[in-house]
């Protein structure tokens, strides 16, 4: 078994309204920053032991499917690195 960190990034699908990101963008603009858009995402770092990277990615993907993301509104990606 090898120790991995699987990083699961969950973001809203394109086109889904993100009021929190809009509010954050407005706050940045109030501070004088110039920006054309802002998107936010949630990142989960999962430490786990697996036989190989594929298995670690597979398990993290299932975590995303079953809990970390809501497929109605979210896309997600999984990246695995040895820890």
């Amino acid at each position: 078994m090898t120790a991995y960190t699987a990083t699961v990034t969950v973001r809203l699908k394109r086109g889904v309204l993100d009021p929190e990101a809009e509010t954050t963008q407005q706050a940045l603009e109030r501070l004088g920053f110039e920006l054309s858009d802002l998107r936010s995402a949630d990142r989960f770092e999962v430490d786990l032991d697996a036989a190989d990277g594929d298995e670690a990615a597979e398990r993290a993907t299932e975590m995303a499917e079953r809990l970390l993301a809501n497929p109605t509104i979210h896309d997600y990606d999984v990246a695995v690195a040895e820890r």
Partner: peptide, 17 residues
């Protein structure tokens, strides 16, 4: 209910935030 699959769709942050 929607998170558990009893009904379709999702309820998320109000447009007003």
């Amino acid at each position: 209910g929607s998170e558990s699959g009893l009904t379709p769709g999702a309820f998320t942050t109000n447009a007003s935030a």
